[in-house]
């Protein structure tokens, strides 16, 4: 691993982000990344966060038209409430703050505590939970569906609405609409290695793949012999389409887990496109790249979001962040 010691991995990365992105204010000590110039008068602030190891999520999505602040936790560990409270205070213009929370026990507990504390300090807070992962089928006897690729859609589309000056309840309702209209499914070709463990978090032999993985190096629900890109695309597309049954064109994210080359990812995205077309799902926009990663895991996830005209307009709206940039 290209690190100094496991204990300083997150702080070291934050120092690097600060140098590469002077348009962001990076508080390395307190672990908050804030869009320079915040708070923006009359605009809702968007705060997200989660464990590190998913870069560019979330810090790479701070900027115009997306997040106003991000709170990175330790690797695969949710941030602590102090970070979100600090971020909320820094970005609140008086128009309120939306917390975008991926549905994991730790993230939910820490953001809930933070929301209470921020409200005590006079910040109006709304929360949206992202839970798009269809691989978690049994929500009753689990912690519920995980938040994965749809986080990018929620942050982009709600961020565009906030940038246009929409009020807090409107920004929050768009965020919820996007989450409800999104589904994801992920596949791993290799496990990832956390700095703390120094080796793979689970054992996945060559020639096998893991279906229905999360983004924290946790294994999926089923292991199979290696399949072709086209076969994997069929499995992933079946999973998301059968669950969502979209009746309108979709936004498509074909997301790399961190160690899959773009050459393979683009090939996979062509297969995903083919599989969607065969199932009569039309694709309005396609984004391909490593956006919601799991350290050095090889593999990919497919996220679709059923989009009406309004969501398509918000998708095309200008965005300027380290990881996503167009229209500016």
């Amino acid at each position: 691993m290209l690190i100094n010691v496991p204990e300083t991995v997150v702080a070291d990365a934050l120092r690097g982000i600060a140098i590469a992105h002077p348009e962001l204010t990076v508080d390395v000590e307190r672990r908050v990344i804030i869009r320079r110039g915040a708070p923006y008068e009359g605009k809702v602030g968007l705060v997200s966060g989660g464990g590190s190891g998913h870069e560019p999520l979330h810090g790479g999505f701070v900027g115009r038209g997306m997040l106003t602040a991000a709170c990175p936790g330790e690797v695969f560990t949710s941030p602590v409430p102090d970070q979100m409270v600090r971020a909320a205070a820094a970005v609140d213009s008086g128009a309120g703050v939306l917390f975008i929370v991926k549905n994991y026990t730790g993230d939910v507990l820490n953001f809930d505590m933070a929301a209470e504390l921020a409200e005590d300090e006079g910040v109006q807070v709304a929360k949206v939970l992202v839970n798009d992962d269809v691989a978690v089928t049994d929500s009753l006897y689990t912690a519920g569906r995980r938040g994965t690729g749809a986080t990018l859609f929620v942050e982009k589309l709600a961020g565009a609405a906030a940038d246009e000056g929409a009020p807090l309840d409107r920004v929050a309702s768009i965020a919820r609409q996007v989450n409800e209209a999104s589904r994801s499914f992920g596949v791993a070709l290799s496990a990832c290695s956390t700095p703390a463990k120094g080796g793979p978090t689970f054992d996945l032999p060559d020639g096998e793949l893991e279906l229905g993985i999360g983004i924290h190096g946790e294994p999926g629900r089923e292991r199979r012999a290696m399949m072709t890109s086209g076969e994997i695309a069929d499995v992933a597309v079946d999973a998301v389409v059968e669950d969502l049954r979209p009746e309108a064109p979709v936004l498509l994210l074909v997301n790399g887990m961190g160690a899959t080359p773009l050459l393979e990812l683009y090939g996979f995205s062509a297969e995903v496109h083919r599989a969607l077309t065969e199932r009569k799902v039309s694709v309005a926009r396609t984004l391909v790249g490593n956006y919601v990663t799991s350290l050095d895991m090889a593999g990919a996830s497919v996220t679709i979001c059923q989009a009406d005209e309004e969501l398509l307009r918000l998708w095309d709206a200008p965005v300027s962040t380290p990881a996503l940039r167009w229209g500016c």
């Binding site: 936790g73 330790e74 560990t77 949710s78 602590v80 409430p81 026990t105 820490n110």
Partner: peptide, 12 residues
């Protein structure tokens, strides 16, 4: 613990 641990363990 709430201020330093994070994850689910910190709040719990």
């Amino acid at each position: 613990l709430i201020s330093t641990v994070g994850g689910a363990s910190g709040p719990l």
